[in-house]
């Protein structure tokens, strides 16, 4: 149990699985009172509008539960396809890889809280 949740999507999800991921993840945010969610999509070769919507949903749901979502490791071809499709994943932050994602989350949370004690917890990121 820690500040961040890390989810790695390893396979191309079919719709039901993606939907249950959405539900599970939001529950986990609640349970662990995580401040950030990292979704690693580096092994996902296809993100269509459904998958994009799931990602957007997770971000929006986490947001109202006070957690930021960062999608990390998107493949160039996937990014270009998403843009062509007209789906720039608004409201979802992106980072090149997991470390960068962590950094981004840290800075986001710092900005928000602006309390020095956050610094102490910074190095104790734990992942799911």
């Amino acid at each position: 149990m820690g500040q961040y949740l890390l989810v790695t999507i390893q396979v191309d999800l079919y719709d039901q699985l993606a939907e249950s991921l959405e539900a599970d993840l939001v529950n986990m945010v609640r349970k662990t009172s995580a401040k950030g969610v990292l979704i690693d999509v580096s092994s996902v070769s296809i993100i269509d509008s459904f998958m994009g919507r799931i990602l957007g949903n997770i971000a929006a749901m986490s947001k109202i539960m006070d957690a930021e979502t960062v999608v990390v490791g998107m493949q160039p071809a996937v990014a270009i396809t998403l843009v062509e499709l007209g789906l720039p994943l608004k409201g979802v932050h992106s980072a090149l890889n997991v470390e960068r994602g962590m950094e981004l989350l840290r800075s986001k949370i710092l900005q928000e809280e602006e309390t020095p004690e956050e610094d102490d917890n910074d190095n104790t990121d734990s992942t799911e």
């Binding site: 070769s45 296809i46 993100i47 269509d48 509008s49 459904f50 160039p76 071809a77 270009i80 396809t81």
Partner: peptide, 14 residues
């Protein structure tokens, strides 16, 4: 190419 593959499959998936 990988990019065109991705586009094709994404479109097909839609």
């Amino acid at each position: 190419s990988l990019l065109n593959q991705t586009k094709l499959i994404t479109g097909a998936s839609e």
